[in-house]
């Protein structure tokens, strides 16, 4: 596949980079990334991957756009209120780059469908807000041997890490088990700065682009944290999997996906 003149111009700032070049751009155009959660994190990830020319972007979210989303979910607009988020994000993506193919999954992602969905993609973005979904994504990605980027945001803080099968610890190696209901505040209860979703979502997009192009080093075996109040970025080294992880260890006890209890205060619209 040769790049067209229009593509050469559109992606010129990528092609200029030695680490990307036209080869890297072609890899982006052929890549398939699925974003689970079209919210604070999923919006910037979707917009930047679309602009980058990622050829196929999957977007999964069952929710519709709510007024309280607009403080941080930058792909949705006031005119989109009440619209399914997957549709709204799809429209924003295609407005940026009509070449991108968008697959939408307007459904609750659970143990019955997640493996099927992620199977078709090269890289998975965890843009969800709750731990049940985060553990589900982790376990499904380990089982399907899919690389993914986890992220979380709360108040003025954010974090992310990347899992590559066989190369480093998974989310469960670090966080073991689902915390009980209400044990940990979520941004729905505790609030979050809108720009935090942008910072961390953009870092997730960066991970996806690096994974696809092979440029640089991924956040494997490291948790990147950002403290927005004090302007501190840190990388915390994570020990490698010790073989005892319940899902990616040598003798996994989790071999089938289960649906964890949904957190309380799930505001169904």
């Amino acid at each position: 596949m040769a790049l067209t003149d229009e593509q050469i111009e559109r992606y010129s700032r990528h092609i200029l980079l030695k680490e990307v070049g036209s080869k890297g751009q072609k890899k982006l155009l052929e890549a398939k990334v699925v974003i689970i959660g079209a919210g604070g994190l999923g919006c910037p990830v979707g917009l930047y991957l679309a602009a980058a020319g990622v050829g196929t972007i999957g977007v999964a979210d069952a929710d519709v756009v709510d007024l309280s989303n607009l403080q941080r979910q930058v792909a949705h607009t006031t005119a989109d209120l009440g619209k399914p988020k997957v549709e709204s994000l799809k429209e924003s993506i295609q407005a940026i780059n009509p070449d991108v193919k968008v697959n939408t999954y307007q459904e609750f992602i659970d143990s019955s469908n997640i493996r099927q969905i992620i199977r078709d993609y090269d890289f998975v973005i965890d843009g969800t807000d709750n731990f049940a979904a985060k553990f589900l994504i982790n376990d499904a990605c380990v089982m399907e041997k899919k690389p993914f980027c986890h992220a979380g945001i709360l108040r003025f803080n954010g974090q992310l890490m990347t899992y590559i099968p066989g190369q480093g610890p998974c989310y469960r190696c670090v966080f073991k088990e689902m915390p009980p209901k209400d044990a940990i505040p979520t941004c729905r209860q505790a609030g979050v700065i809108g720009a935090m979703a942008g910072v961390i979502g953009c870092l997730q997009a960066m991970e996806a682009v690096k994974f696809i192009t092979g440029a640089g080093k991924l956040l494997v075996g490291e948790l990147q944290t950002y403290d927005g109040l004090n302007n501190v970025f840190r990388k915390v080294k994570l020990p490698p999997c010790n073989g005892k992880c319940a899902v990616c260890g040598d003798n996994p006890t989790i071999t089938e996906l289960v649906d964890y209890e949904q957190p309380t205060c799930e505001l169904k619209h």
Partner: peptide, 14 residues
């Protein structure tokens, strides 16, 4: 010593 916190965030419950 490092403390690693659970952090949710992102989209509403799927």
């Amino acid at each position: 010593v490092e403390f690693l916190y659970f952090m949710g965030g992102g989209a509403a419950w799927l």
